[in-house]
């Protein structure tokens, strides 16, 4: 298989890593009445891409870079702490680790020879972007491909949740994603560049409402999505 097929496999929402159960904060934003239609969904996706998307992609790319370094375990531990420091909401830290755990489960089953033992798992599992970085390195993907996969998934997951939660026309939601494609490419390129920097300088784009929404969502009695 060529690396580009592997890229498509890893980025595919059908890759069994639990993506279907996460709305990327959209369920809470819908619940708060802030996302109601295509236009507000588009704005949501743009903001999410520029914040969580950039940070996640940069950390995935940085983990990919760490995979080949002599002090891999030390670097991964540092990335873990740096990502925690960028995730002010405990609910979001939990979600990232839960998704990391799901991806790791799939990764271990699909690439049994790849090593993941040095992933920091304190706090309920390894952070998802770190797992993604190591997994795509194991799969032979490049660093830019890794960043692209991460950025892409932060918008596609929320977009498909929008279709399910708001009953939006799936063709028009897909058109939104097409409109966003160039921004997604740019975000991935920026994340890939940033991954060359020392960990403390990695992007830290924050979104106050993402934190607030996540903590509200965690208190809901009935949730359709895990995040």
């Amino acid at each position: 298989m060529t690396p580009s097929t592997l890229l498509l496999l890893l980025a595919d929402g059908r890759f069994p890593a639990g993506a279907h159960a996460h709305s990327g904060g959209l369920e809470a934003a819908v619940g708060a009445g802030r996302v109601t239609d295509l236009a507000t969904l588009a704005a949501f996706l743009r903001g999410r891409l520029a914040t969580a998307g950039l940070v996640g992609a940069a950390f995935a790319a940085a983990a990919h870079r760490a995979a080949g370094q002599p002090d891999r375990a030390g670097l991964l531990a540092l990335l873990d702490a740096e990502l925690d420091a960028r995730t002010a909401a405990e609910a979001l830290r939990r979600v990232s680790r839960r998704q990391g755990r799901a991806l790791l489960r799939a990764g271990k089953a699909v690439w049994p020879t790849a090593g993941f033992a040095d992933l920091p798992t304190a706090g309920g599992g390894p952070h998802q972007p770190l797992v993604l970085g190591l997994l795509s390195a194991a799969a032979g993907l490049t660093r830019p491909e890794t960043a692209l996969t991460a950025a892409y998934q932060t918008v596609t997951g929320a977009a498909s949740a929008g279709v399910r939660l708001l009953g939006l026309d799936p063709y028009r939601v897909q058109a939104l994603l097409v409109d966003l494609a160039a921004a997604c490419d740019r975000t991935a390129a920026e994340a890939d560049r940033a991954a060359g920097e020392p960990p403390w300088r990695l992007p830290a784009a924050a979104a106050p409402l993402a934190d607030i929404h996540a903590e509200v969502h965690a208190t809901w009695e009935v949730r359709l999505f895990a995040s």
């Binding site: 802030r34 996302v35 949501f44 996706l45 743009r46 903001g47 999410r48 520029a50 979104a207 409402l209």
Partner: peptide, 12 residues
């Protein structure tokens, strides 16, 4: 220069 900053994902 900050995409989506005033939208529902960031400041609403």
């Amino acid at each position: 220069q900050a995409p989506g900053w005033s939208g529902p994902a960031v400041l609403g």
